[in-house]
Design a protein around this nucleic acid. Structure first.
Lengths: 139, 139
DNA sequence: AAAAATTTTGCAACAAAGTTGCAAAGGTTT
DNA sequence: AAACCTTTGCAACTTTGTTGCAAAATTTTT
């Protein structure tokens, strides 16, 4: 069943290609966020590395996925919720990064508090990243 | 005047070398956070790239600087406040990243709110990154 | 203050991550 | 199904980060 992926692609005015379907499907099936490496591994030899880069880029531009800040070097991508439109600053997320297994969780139910900024500063997006140990990895 | 840098290095039981003095000095003089690229550019041909990597690594281990999460790929480093000890999770920062000029500010006066996590999740560090336009770049 | 011991640096070589141009293949439209 | 537009994969390249090792610098010892 990959209807959902196709519908999402069409909704965002993207051609429906094999690569896009498979990668989007992978996101839909994954609980957390994915790095480029995760996807490359999962897809095996099926697609060129370059294609994956470009697909992720496209998805970000169209507002299908968004990037999650992290202190380590890896860019993580996660599905946007429906109300998340391209170009706009999205709804602000709270993310949890497990230091043990490396999984990134989107904590949708927790809301990001408003931060009071110094004069002259304008907030556009607020990212809150909590790192620690997730429920699967606790001793 | 680079006494401050020397004192800091000694306090952290590090040999006082030219590279370390200069890089630490650069941090002391910079308002915001720095990427590896910033430092490499600033230092010119003076030091080897590898040395800069290793110096930053050492500084992080010793708790002189810390990394700041970001959604783009670049790792940013900023000076830790004095109470920030190596190994421990530091005092939690709020950071502001300007989308215009790229400067990262440490908003020390704002405190990070406690986040309520789902059952089984343990928080270790909380990073809050606000991005938008800083006071220098506002129209 | 010089010698011995330890650390740090720079080089070289490599590994990984990301980008660009372009022709071929695949999707879309009429 | 033909014409058109978009996407893909290849190749070549740039950038970023890592590792081992001998030379140089720093610290400690005498």
């Amino acid at each position: 069943m990959q209807e959902a992926a196709i519908i999402t692609l069409k909704k965002h005015e993207l051609s429906v290609t094999d690569t896009r379907k498979k990668i989007l499907q992978f996101f839909l099936e994954s609980a957390g966020a994915l790095t480029h490496a995760d996807i490359e591994q999962q897809m095996g030899e099926a697609f060129d590395r370059v294609t994956i880069y470009r697909t992720l880029q496209t998805f970000v531009e169209k507002g299908i996925i968004h990037t999650i800040p992290s202190a380590d070097n890896a860019i993580r991508y996660a599905l946007c919720k429906d109300n998340c439109a391209a170009g706009h600053h999205h709804d602000d997320h709270v993310h949890f990064l497990c230091n043990d297994c490396g999984t990134t969780y989107c904590l949708d139910h927790v809301s990001v508090p408003k931060i009071k900024l110094p004069k002259g500063f304008t907030a556009n997006q607020t990212d809150l990243v909590v790192s620690g140990v997730c429920h699967k990895c606790e001793a």
